[in-house]
Design a protein around this nucleic acid. Structure first.
Length: 972
DNA sequence: GCAAGGACGTA
DNA sequence: GTACGTCCTTGCA
């Protein structure tokens, strides 16, 4: 007997890094590793002929689950990052490839592939056979034996080396300095940084081998540790004896895996064209199909592509209609959309999916475990699934889960009702509706699927579903998000699934209003009948999977892959966790303020009525305008675009000053107080979540043109700070008992980004020297020494600096500073003369936006302006200013996003516990245990300051200021 | 009950 | 002059 065991998982990972990426032509599915794997299996069968030919064969895979090693040592393989997303869909395909060659793929929950290999190896030896292990994993070297009955074979292609490299006792000796039977003793001492096996700190392979060759094994060495001459080595061994013993347990492969298949079941059977060719065709490996068909003396045309794996012929006309593809290519070329294969591919995917009709009646209601298990099996075959949750409300921190829908391909869908009540019309209702499986049973079945990093879960607005699912104990790994794909590609153009579906599929789907109604009679999803719910929810999952196919195909041709993969997708779970944490607010402070504001508002209101000589609604700009400019006949009134009198704060203040109108002052004061009361002190307490006693904002990751976040329900990005009253509100945001808040903010991030992008040496020098940037600007412009500079001069320079960032106009600057427009124009001219690069930068962005319709951040985020060539002068001017601002604001936004993505792992790495709670554009708020703030702050600042690297090396220093206190006002 | 407009809080 | 979200009034359904 000759048993050949292929270590499948290691090969896939090595192939992923070694081989160029390859995508299936028809749908862009990544298949590079599958192809590498298929070639490897084929070459093995070719190379191992005659004497070397195995009689038994299997491919062994790791099963993504914990193993006994996690129980021995919690940190085992803790450093291992999740597999790359491109690799994920390829896992099930490599199993399929194995079966296509008539070889059994073997994996077992709770066991690593290495353990299964060790057990089969032991059994084969006991049966008198020999074993070849196809792997280069050093952990398997312990199985090699001295008399050549167990050898390893490394087949990973390496330049300059033979294609097949046998690993026997000599090679093991080279690697570990000992015979194979002593490998685990050496590994126990030297550990393994990749798998996070600790070993004895400070002992490497060389020392370990020397010690083992002297003392024979670990136990004997430890028993004689006292005798070792070198003091530090002796001490390390004595101190870390237990660590070494644990390490040995970790590296020792189990030879007692309870195998499901006996050795005899692995007997080789010949390849069958009926299995192999349909697989190769489904993968669209055309050359391999021909070659293997010839080898097997089969007619490739006699077999169809495996329907389970092939791109589904979802459209009336398939992808392979040459005439149609050609016509399409011609049309696209004529439209100037280019003819790169990726562009054509994306267009084909879109057209095909768009042509697939919706059939709401086809969606399945899953009402029992057997039904769900069938769907889960389909999900594992597909490797990905679109998921949508239905809940009782829009607040994902409170809403109850009502059901979950799934779709694995355009046109299909299923709904698992979990908490529907009996009909809303039934006045005795609110019982549990019939035909639903137990929620715990359903979740138990779904839990491993959601956690499985080899199955991609596709959401639309993942953050919402995450907030619901984690509260039901589901962990979700490996996600894509159709809404974020859309945002990475098109910016905030589309906000809802309905808008996306309408635009891309020409089918908006059932509006939720149609099911729930609105106003007083509005129902929750739990009150919807299961049949209606299945149509609605199934459609949502179906739409999601369609959008995913269409949008994902556009990433590569539209240069948005990096933004999506490195900024958008990784940020979503970070934000989801911040939302779930919330922040504590002090109700008492707010209640006292509300009372205070109410009194002051009432007094101001009475005073205003007195001054106006009549009772009117102070909250009505219309009534106010009529009184000021009508009844009182004040001059200087201007009209808004709707013909109303304008009554903005700036205008009222001017009126108070110039015309000496006390009423104007009173109104401004009243507005200030009622604004704070209405928006903050009255409103915020209502947002306190009764379970957590904290306020949970929702961040929108897909709403802002420039790449910033926005915050809503409540908006925690506009908590007051500028006035005394405002800061009192801010002081109501507090650390939990025993905790502290840390606020870390970027200093002048946008001006620094401007200095970098526009390459303004004078600005860079100023930042390098740590100067007051506004004072420096003033000194340059007005020729005033920084020392003893009047505050008014600095204020003007500051307004100009901000103006530059906003795409300055003389009109705007004049307005801001209350100076004549001609004077503002002179300031701008002076600024351009002093900092000549600024004008170049501005002109450059103007040209870019007009020629290509978008500008970019330093990380390549595209910010689109479809109106760049508008026929309206005002609109054009607006786009010009926005296109000047967007790369600055957007690059700063990208920097803090990168910091947020890296923050949690960096804190873990540093051994600091800190919870990131809020982001306010250039500021991050954390909550830490009291007393740990001095450890946390440097780590936080370091991550933030280095966030652009290594993607971009900024040519200005980035500075972060961090402070800790019990409340947000004092921490800021 | 809903949308638009004005005003104003933040970076 | 950039980017947001929320509150309130108004006007129409």
């Amino acid at each position: 007997m000759h048993l050949l065991l292929v270590d499948g998982s290691t090969y896939i990972f090595r192939a992923y890094h070694a081989l160029p990426p390859l995508n299936r032509k028809s749908d862009g599915l990544p298949v590079g590793c599958v192809q590498g794997f298929t070639n490897m299996i084929f070459k093995l069968t070719e190379d191992l002929k005659g004497e070397d030919a195995p009689t038994h064969m299997a491919v062994i895979f790791d099963h993504s689950a914990r193993t006994f090693r996690d129980d021995i040592y919690a940190d085992y393989k803790a450093q291992r990052p999740p597999p790359p997303e491109e690799l994920v869909p390829q896992f099930p395909l490599t199993r399929a490839a194995t079966r296509a060659f008539s070889i059994l793929p073997i994996e077992m929950e709770g066991w690593e592939a290495d353990d299964i290999i060790a057990t089969y190896t032991t059994q084969a030896l006991a049966a008198g056979g020999k074993v070849t292990i196809v792997s280069s994993d050093k952990d398997l070297m312990q199985l090699v034996d001295l008399d050549g009955r167990v050898r390893m074979l490394d087949t990973i292609p390496r330049p300059g080396q033979p294609p097949l490299r046998w690993i026997g006792p000599d090679e093991v000796m080279t690697k570990f300095g000992v015979t194979p039977d002593k490998v685990i003793e050496v590994q126990a001492l030297c550990g393994d940084s990749v798998d996070n096996v600790p070993g004895v700190p400070g002992i490497g392979v060389k020392t370990a081998a020397e010690l083992i060759n002297t003392y024979g094994d670990l136990e004997n060495l430890l028993a004689h540790a006292e005798e070792i001459k070198q003091p530090s080595r002796r001490q390390k061994l004595i101190e870390n004896a237990d660590l070494a013993r644990i390490s040995k347990q970790l590296v020792t492969l189990s030879k007692e895996v309870p195998l499901e298949l006996e050795l005899s079941a692995l007997a080789r059977v010949p390849m069958e064209p009926g299995k192999l060719i349909p697989f190769l065709k489904a993968m669209e490996f055309n050359a391999a199909t021909k070659r293997l068909a010839t080898l097997l003396e089969a007619d490739p045309d006699a077999y169809e592509a495996d329907p389970e794996l092939a791109v589904k012929p979802v459209a009336p006309v398939g992808f392979d209609n040459a005439a149609r593809a050609e016509a399409r290519a011609a049309r696209l070329a004529a439209e100037g959309r280019g003819d790169s294969p990726a562009v054509l591919h994306a267009a084909e995917v879109h057209e095909t999916i768009k042509a697939t009709p919706f059939d709401l009646a086809a969606y399945e209601t899953i009402s029992d475990a057997a039904g769900l298990e069938r769907w889960i099996a389909a999900i594992y075959r597909q490797g990905y699934v679109a998921v949508d949750t239905e809940t009782t409300g829009l607040d994902n921190q409170q809403a109850d889960l009502v059901g979950i829908s799934l779709s694995t391909q355009p046109g299909n869908g299923a709904y698992i009702p979990l908490a529907h009540a009996t009909g809303a019309d039934d006045m005795f209702g609110n019982g549990r509706a019939e035909g639903q499986m137990d929620i715990e049973v359903a979740l138990a079945l779904l839990r491993p699927v959601f956690a499985d990093r080899s199955i991609l879960k596709i959401f639309h607005n993942y953050k919402f579903d995450h907030g619901v699912l984690v509260r039901y104990g589901l962990e979700v790994n490996a996600i894509d998000d159709a809404l974020l794909l859309s945002y990475a590609l098109d910016g905030p153009q589309f906000n809802t699934m309905g808008e996306l579906a309408d635009h891309w599929l020409g089918h908006a789907g059932i509006p939720i209003k149609e099911l729930l109604g609105s106003g007083k009679t509005q129902r929750t999803f739990a009150q919807i009948g299961i049949a209606d719910a299945t149509r609605y929810a199934g459609e949502d999952a179906d739409i999601t999977v369609r959008l995913w196919h269409i949008l994902k195909a556009r990433l590569v041709p539209e240069n948005s892959t990096a933004i999506y993969e490195t900024l958008e997708r990784p940020l979503a779970p970070v934000l989801a966790r911040m939302e779930a944490r919330g922040i504590s607010i002090d109700r008492q402070i707010l209640a006292r303020l509300s009372g205070d504001f109410a009194q002051r508002a009432a007094a101001l209101e009475a005073e205003a009525h007195e001054l106006a000589g009549e009772v009117f609604n102070l909250g009505s700009p219309k009534q106010l305008g009529d009184i000021l400019f009508g009844k009182l006949g004040l001059p200087g009134g201007s009209k808004t675009k709707t013909g109303q009198w304008a009554t903005g704060a700036g205008l009222l203040e001017e009126l108070a000053e110039r015309e000496n109108v006390p009423l104007a002052k009173v109104i401004v004061a009243w507005r200030g107080v009622t604004k704070l009361k209405g928006t903050y002190t009255d409103a915020l307490p209502a947002y306190i979540n009764s379970r957590s006693n904290r306020v949970h904002t929702t961040y929108s990751q897909h709403s802002v043109l420039t790449g910033r976040l926005s915050s809503n329900d409540p908006n925690l990005q506009n908590i007051p700070i500028r006035t005394e009253d405002g800061r009192k509100i801010r002081s109501a945001f507090v650390a939990a008992p025993g905790k502290m808040l840390i606020s870390a903010d970027y200093s002048q991030i946008e001006l620094r980004v401007l200095a970098h992008i526009a390459d303004i040496q004078a600005l860079k020098d100023a930042f390098e020297e740590g100067l007051d940037i506004h004072a420096m600007t003033a000194s340059e412009m007005f020729k005033v020494p920084i020392e003893g500079m009047p505050s008014e001069v600095r204020r003007r320079a500051k307004a100009i600096n901000f103006g530059i960032i906003y795409g300055i106009s003389a009109f705007g600057l004049a307005n801001q500073l209350g100076i004549p427009r001609s004077e503002a124009g002179d300031y701008i001219d002076t600024y351009f003369k002093r900092f000549p690069g600024i004008k170049d930068y501005m002109d450059h962005q103007r040209r870019l936006v007009k020629s290509q319709g978008y500008v970019t951040t330093i990380f390549g985020r595209r910010i689109r302006f479809p109106n760049a060539n508008s026929s309206h002068q005002a609109e054009r001017a607006f786009v010009e200013r926005a296109s000047i601002n967007a790369p600055i604001q957007g690059s700063a936004a990208d920097i803090i996003r990168r910091a947020m993505i890296r923050m949690e792992p960096a804190l873990v790495q540093a051994g600091v516990h800190a919870d990131m709670l809020l982001q306010v554009h250039d500021e991050l708020i954390f909550e830490v245990d009291e007393g740990t703030e001095d450890e946390a702050m440097p780590v936080i600042a370091q991550v933030m300051e280095g966030a652009a690297e290594p993607a971009v090396r900024l040519t200005v220093p980035i500075q972060v200021d961090a402070h800790a206190a019990k409340n947000w006002d004092e921490a800021h």
